[in-house]
């Protein structure tokens, strides 16, 4: 199986912090699979995820070592840590999309929320825009619910709908990788289920990495699971292996709820 991203010996230190938040992480992310990152609060899982599209760079002063490779179909690779120019960042973030913990609808209509990113890529044709918006909304199973109020303010949607809109906004850009940062922790169980089912569908076409607090969620939806603790990657394997026969004692303790 081919890797979509490869994190090699990656260390990360926040601005002003003495000790690194991530120590020498090496983690492959396989194409069209769901990789979940689990671990107790403060273990660095979100930090790692946020490094994968360099969203940390909004806040200057952080330092990092190692490499994070993004691979294309032909096997060409790019170390995303080398990116320095604004337009390369924009390109990276269009290829590696991100969905956040809290739904973040933009203060505009449902239609514009999705069209916003598309317009940034230079798409201006109204019919094409509409088609893309419809397709993205269908992909997240939101179309039927919102097709009659596409031009209403997106902030009027329910939390679960808002989160699906945010996912639609990301997939409209046809990214290669989608990063989910605890996407269901602010949602009710039904909305959570809808999002999980969607992630299952999405992996046909996208490579997915998800950070989650919810171990059941990791076991339900992911193919691979990485367990992190205090900035170290303790164990990485097939999800069944991690949950049924973990090699490390720490992993087993966490999975069985002895700490964390």
């Amino acid at each position: 199986m081919k890797n979509k991203m490869e994190i090699n010996h990656f260390s990360f230190t926040y601005k002003g912090a003495k000790a690194p938040s991530l120590n020498n992480i090496t983690l492959p992310v396989q194409t069209h699979k769901v990789t979940s990152i689990i671990g107790p609060s403060g273990c660095g899982k979100s930090t790692l995820l946020r490094s994968m599209n360099r969203i940390h760079d909004l806040y200057p002063g952080n330092t990092y070592e190692g490499e994070i490779l993004l691979l294309d179909k032909d096997g060409n690779q790019q170390n995303i840590l080398d990116i320095k120019k604004e337009n390369e960042f924009i390109h990276l973030r269009q290829k590696v999309g991100m969905v956040f913990q809290k739904p973040t609808p933009f203060p505009m209509s449902i239609f514009d929320n999705i069209a916003y990113g598309l317009k940034l890529t230079g798409l201006k044709n109204k019919h094409k825009l509409y088609d893309y918006v419809e397709k993205s909304l269908r992909d997240v199973a939101l179309w039927e619910e919102v097709k009659n109020r596409l031009y209403d303010d997106a902030r009027g949607l329910s939390g679960g709908q808002q989160q699906r809109l945010c996912i639609a906004r990301v997939i409209a850009l046809k990214p290669e990788v989608i990063l989910f940062d605890e996407p269901t922790s602010a949602l009710d169980p039904l909305s959570t289920l809808a999002i999980e089912e969607m992630i299952f569908e999405l992996k046909q076409n996208y490579t997915i990495t998800i950070v989650t607090h919810n171990m059941q969620q990791a076991s339900r939806i992911s193919d691979y699971t990485a367990f992190m603790y205090l900035g170290d990657l303790i164990e990485f394997d097939h999800t069944e292996t991690i949950f049924i026969r973990p090699k490390e004692k720490q992993t087993e303790d966490y999975i069985t709820g002895k700490f964390g």
């Binding site: 604004e86 924009i90 973030r93 269009q94 999309g97 933009f106 916003y116 990113g117 890529t121 906004r169």
Partner: peptide
Amino acid sequence: TELREAGIAIGAPKYHVIFHI
């Protein structure tokens, strides 16, 4: 802050996020 990050994360330049979002 999430709103700023969300804008940046779909590939918008910073000034665009500020003035449009």
